[in-house]
């Protein structure tokens, strides 16, 4: 195991994060605040409570998930797409590192960034609403697993993408709708029965539900199912990455 290499990649990537610290942190903080103004104040004044939780507080886990998922994907996909784009990938390919170490460095850094962003959003939210976290450990576990699995997923997109359009395509066309329709701002139980059943095919529902459970103890789906969903997604991404490196898909000619 080439720990030096993992460390080098991780530090290098984190430095990029700190170089653009203001942009990195400011945009999630601002957009969260905006969500609070729009959803919390405007809609919250009409919806009093969801499942016994004030609406403003109810949307916090969904908001965190929304940012963490999109940030993980964009950070990780960019981190590996950029070296491909400017040609510096040659160095990774010629270095004595294996796929696992490369992934650990890049995905580790991307996941760390989105974890930090998730925590920042939580702190921001506390300025607007009162939140009590019922299961802090489960909350941390869900947050970590989400950061990790979506960073893995972003890494795959970054390798697959041939240009900047493709880099944006999947997040824009698949992830964003899935996240918005995944119950970030509402409970699935608020939907008509037909839509409830359809929602159950959206994997993001399970993640948000589980994460929300760790906050308030209420969930749309059983917590065990949520855990299974996130673990399954992580496993799927890991096997895809394994396959990519084994075949050299879109990295080696």
């Amino acid at each position: 195991m080439n720990f030096q290499a993992v460390k080098a990649i991780y530090i290098y990537e984190m430095k990029r994060f700190f170089r653009t610290l203001m942009e990195s942190l400011l945009s999630p903080v601002i957009s969260t605040s905006l969500y609070f103004v729009v959803f919390g104040a405007a809609i919250g004044s009409r919806i009093d409570q969801v499942e016994g939780v004030a609406y403003g507080a109810f949307i916090v886990p969904g908001l965190i998930m929304l940012s963490v998922m999109t940030q993980s994907i964009s950070n990780a996909s960019f981190a590996i797409y950029f070296p491909k784009f400017i040609g510096t990938i040659f160095e990774l390919l010629s270095a004595p590192v294996n796929a696992f170490e490369i992934v650990l460095g890049y995905v580790g850094a991307a996941a760390t960034k989105s974890f930090v962003i998730g925590v920042i959003i939580l702190i921001t939210a506390r300025f607007f609403v009162e939140i009590h976290i019922q299961h802090p450990l489960a909350m941390l576990a869900f947050l970590t697993l989400t950061c990790l699995s979506f960073s893995l997923f972003g890494f795959i997109i970054g390798i697959w993408a041939r240009d900047f359009q493709q880099l944006q395509l999947i997040p824009l066309l698949i992830i964003t709708p899935m996240v918005f329709l995944g119950g970030s701002f509402y409970s699935i139980s608020m939907l008509p029965p037909a839509w409830q059943s359809i929602s159950l095919f959206n994997p993001v529902v399970y993640l948000i539900s589980g994460f929300r459970w760790s906050f308030f103890g209420t969930a749309d789906v059983a917590i065990g199912l949520s855990l299974l969903a996130i673990l399954g997604f992580t496993a799927l991404c890991l096997s895809l990455i394994w396959l990519i490196f084994k075949t050299g898909y879109r990295i080696k000619s």
Binding site: N2, Q4, A5, K7, A8, I9, I11, Y12, K15, R19, F82, P83, I86, G87, T88, F90, E91, L92, S94, A95, P96, V97
Partner: peptide
């Protein structure tokens, strides 16, 4: 390896990119 094409990360500083290379090779 010194490749034919100049491929470097434009916004990085010289010393960081050199340190990165050394780390990548496990040193």
């Amino acid at each position: 390896l010194v490749p034919q094409e100049v491929a470097l990360e434009p916004f990085e500083r010289v010393i960081n990119t050199v340190r990165f290379s050394r780390g990548l090779f496990g040193k």
